[in-house]
Design a protein around this nucleic acid. Structure first.
Length: 725
DNA sequence: CAGCCTCGAGTTCT
DNA sequence: CTCGAGGCTG
């Protein structure tokens, strides 16, 4: 370089500034110990920016100046993870942790390892977003969200702006190195950001987690750059070689630290499960003092080389588990109890609560289920109550705090009249629920009936949601489902929150729903006790709407009872077993259909629907013998195929399947001759589990029922995995 | 009649 | 997801 430019050529000065700024970033964001005043940092930063602007040839994507954000993305590309980002099994009770320890030791022993040498590493479970960072030759090249575990979104440009993420790693590292960790926001940063947000008249975020997620998904990286995001590394993804990588998990975290990656400060290495539980309790006690939110702790087998040997259950590693803190509870006031009217007229008491922040969201409503439940909890309006987010989602009023009951607290009684239509409300003998007897005269029931009719699993009228139905009923534009087909786009466009375009779309959706499978149509009618399953049975048995409604139900009830009596009798003489008519449909359901069919109003509605051009397509003809399906197959009907690989298997689907809706999976199961049910029991053949499976997994493990993931399932039905675009 | 097993129905918030 | 209740089995 030219010797006349002081002692520092721009190239050298730029490099020095970059190194120094990164060092300050590291001190501030990773070590939490600032080394220079902010003003000094800003001065250096500005100098670097100027130099880079003056020497474009010296620009580099890993310069700290790039952290302010580059070009605006028009969407996020997809990144297939070289190694899938698995989710962890959850433990809620100590017993679950003991079970985890037992399984780890069994698996280790079975793999020929000395279980007495086992160590565990305990660390915090950050409440943020899991991401994966790819470094090539120590340089940050790509970052992706977890997505469904297999494919995530490319958020490289946004992650570049996160100052806690080093753009270069410090030290010898594998040529290709993938770091897994969590992006999150510190509580104090979150508060400050929200204050600013409010000051600008913008909507504040609900909690640090949502703020972090929202910030990371900004299309403009410059916006992300202004958000105070942090990062903690906790795991390893794909690596090109193992040479520099430590053998224990605890050492791995230390190594991350030495490379310049932030790692959680609280962790432990212990020889046994007692040590883990101690760590859990200590962490729980310190939780509020941490600067960020955590939702539990994570335990991992410390010996990394044991991990593969210990193996995986379904999509989750068996060598690690997340021990969650109990559902967060909060105190609030029971302001009032409202009564909602459901599709079948059931009156449901709903608690109106003083807004309270619990488990990461603001809760204002909670169902109180029914009169008995209310009595059990002995709630009075005005009570201070404990609210919990049960099962991770649905808020629940746990109980009242009796000491805090004010003198003017009021007792609540179920109304004897429907709050919507004023009809009588009755509670049938032996039932828990009060019901409005108003039927379709009741606007609440009419609305719910329409919503049920339009729902995806019924007529699938896209765009006919609560808001629209509300207006259609209130303006008397629609009384019955048949009226829907008389609406035109112009009328629809006259509704609030409806433009020309959406009105046209809705009109098209309504018209398009006229071709429908018979079982969906029968389900859509909303006959009491007739859900999807019973509707399917009826469709297969009767093959038509009239055939179903005009059947001699009284005779069928009789016939079924006598056949069952006959079959139940001892038959030593080899008396033949009679085929049971309508298996799964008992007297109660039959009476409900009979009552529906006998109601002239229902017949009128059906006639109206038919006049509107609705022609439910029957499922393939039922075979009397055992011949193969010659059926032309009217299309989207899923009757169990005889002879499929899954014939006779009962399968339960739980969790989110990567790249596939739950219904699709269930349809697939039926296509291959299996049956899909909703609850795990001894009869269940196996459970098909996706991401974040629910309690069904626990039940399956308890009953010793196999758990498969989508890949295994595909293999089982002889279809290759990833065929979705 | 008791004890499963399923299905139906209702629900919260983003 | 959870609860209630109908259907079926022993």
């Amino acid at each position: 370089m030219s010797p006349d430019q002081d002692d520092t050529a721009p190239q050298v000065r730029i490099e020095r500034l970059r190194t120094e700024l990164e060092r300050h970033n590291h001190a501030y964001y990773v070590l939490d110990a600032p080394t220079v005043p902010d003003a000094e940092y800003d001065r250096l930063f500005l100098e670097l920016q100027r130099l880079e602007a003056a020497h474009p040839a010296l620009a580099s994507p890993d310069s700290p100046t790039r952290r302010v954000g580059g070009a605006v993305a028009s969407g996020f590309g997809q990144v297939r993870h070289a190694l899938p980002m698995l989710s962890l099994q959850n433990a809620f009770e100590e017993d679950d942790v003991l079970g985890f320890d037992r399984r780890v030791r069994e698996a280790a022993t079975a793999a020929g390892l000395d279980a007495s040498a086992l160590r565990y590493c305990g660390e915090l479970k950050f409440d943020g977003l899991a991401i994966s960072l790819r470094y090539e030759s120590g340089r940050f090249v790509q970052g992706a969200t977890r997505g469904d575990g297999a494919v995530g979104e490319d958020v490289t440009a946004n992650l570049r702006t996160v100052r806690a993420i080093p753009l270069r790693l410090d030290g010898p590292v594998p040529r290709r190195l993938e770091i897994r960790g969590e992006v999150l926001m510190f509580r104090r940063d979150f508060e400050r950001m929200n204050d600013a947000q409010r000051a600008r008249g913008e909507k504040p975020f609900v909690n640090p987690r949502n703020a972090a997620a929202g910030s990371l998904r900004q299309l403009d990286p410059a916006l992300t750059a202004q958000r105070p995001l942090r990062f903690f590394a906790y795991g390893l993804g794909d690596v090109s070689d193992d040479l520099a990588v430590p053998a224990s998990h605890a050492a791995l975290l230390d190594w991350f630290g030495s490379l310049g990656l932030p790692v959680g400060s609280h962790r432990c290495t212990v020889p046994d499960v007692e040590g883990l539980l101690r760590f859990y309790r200590e962490t729980g006690a310190r939780r509020a003092a941490l600067p960020y939110d955590i939702d539990g702790v994570v335990y991992k087998v410390d010996q990394r080389e044991w991990h593969e040997a210990i193996g995986y259950v379904a999509r989750a590693p068996r060598f690690a588990i997340a021990h969650k803190f109990p559902a967060e509870e909060a105190l609030t006031e029971l302001l009032d109890i409202d009564v909602q009217v459901g599709r079948t007229g059931v009156l449901t008491p709903v608690a109106r609560l003083r807004a309270v922040f619990v488990g990461g969201v603001t809760v204002t409503n909670a169902t109180l289920h029914n009169e008995d439940e209310l009595a059990r909890k002995d709630l009075m309006i005005g009570d201070t109550v404990i609210v919990r987010r049960a099962g991770d989602v649905i808020p629940e009023v746990v109980r009242a705090v009796p000491e805090a009951r004010p003198a003017q607290a009021r007792r609540f009684t179920m109304p004897s009249r429907c709050p919507v239509c004023g009809s009588a409300a009755v509670r049938e003998e032996g039932e828990v629920a009060w019901r409005c007897v108003g039927g379709l005269y009741c606007k609440a029931q009419r609305k719910q009936a329409l919503l049920h009719f339009a729902q995806r699993r019924a007529m699938d009228i896209d765009g006919l949601g609560e808001k629209i139905v509300e207006q259609l009923v209130e303006r008397d534009l629609v009384q019955t489902p048949a009226d829907l087909y008389r609406l035109d786009a112009a009328t629809l466009a006259g509704l609030d929150r409806m433009g020309e375009k959406s009105a046209a779309n809705l009109a098209a959706a309504i018209a398009g729903s006229r071709t429908v499978a018979l079982e969906r149509f029968l389900f859509a009618l909303g006959i009491r006790h007739v859900g999807e399953e019973i509707a399917r049975i009826l469709a297969v048995e009767f093959g038509g709407v009239d055939e179903t409604l005009d059947a001699d139900w009284a005779a069928l009830i009789e016939a079924k009872a006598s056949v069952q009596k006959h079959n139940a009798r001892a038959r030593p003489k080899g008396e033949p077993l009679l085929p049971v008519p309508l298996e799964g449909v008992g007297p109660e359901i039959m009476r409900a259909i009979q009552a529906f069919a006998a109601e002239p109003h229902n017949r009128e509605v059906i006639a109206g629907l038919r006049a509107a051009g609705i022609e439910p397509a029957p499922p393939p003809r039922r075979r009397n013998g055992a011949d193969a399906s010659e059926g032309v197959g009217t299309g989207h009907v899923s009757v169990p195929a005889a002879g499929g690989v899954l014939e006779g298997r009962i399968i339960v689907v739980t969790g989110t399947l990567p790249g596939m809706a739950r219904d699709e999976a269930e349809a697939l199961i039926r296509q291959h001759g299996g049956s899909a049910t909703g609850s795990v029991s001894k009869r269940t053949s196996f459970v098909l589990a996706g991401e974040n499976p629910g309690s069904k997994i626990a039940k399956a493990i308890e009953l010793g029922i196999p758990v498969l993931d989508l890949e295994h399932f595909f293999r089982m039905i002889g279809r290759d995995g990833q065929e979705n675009s």
